[in-house]
Amino acid sequence: MAVSMTQRAAERARQMLQKRGTPDSAIRIGVSTAGCSGLSYKLEYADQLQEADQQFESHGIRIVVDGKSLLVLDGTEVDFESSAFKSGFKFTNPQVKEQCGCGESFKV
């Protein structure tokens, strides 16, 4: 079981961690149960590890995922996209079967 980040996403995460003044912190990826199709993604800074956390590394960035979320997130790749009107991290999750019109929440 694993999750990963693209080079671009890792680059951006590194910039943001540095700007925040915590270059050594990790990035937490998770899911929460809300939204119009059931589940939605979470992306947060992680200064401390929790008991059930699993760790991964992509292009020099540490990623932590709690055990429950990992079941849903296995195989997910996080990319970073930027254009004139939108920029942010994008989740590509092979397990998703259905997502709401806005892509903000999904079902597996």
């Binding site: 995460a13 943001m16 990035i27 937490r28 929460s32 809300a34 939204g35 119009c36 939605s40 993604y41 979470k42 992306l43 947060e44 800074y45 992680a46 200064d47 996209e81 939108k86 920029s87 942010g88 991290f89 994008k90 989740f91 997502q99 019109g101 806005c102 892509g103 903000e104 929440s105």
Partner: peptide, 18 residues
Amino acid sequence: MDFLLDIAEPGQSAAPHA
């Protein structure tokens, strides 16, 4: 449609659509 996220402070992830 692709949904894009920003990195939030720990525990501060916004509820969807809010």
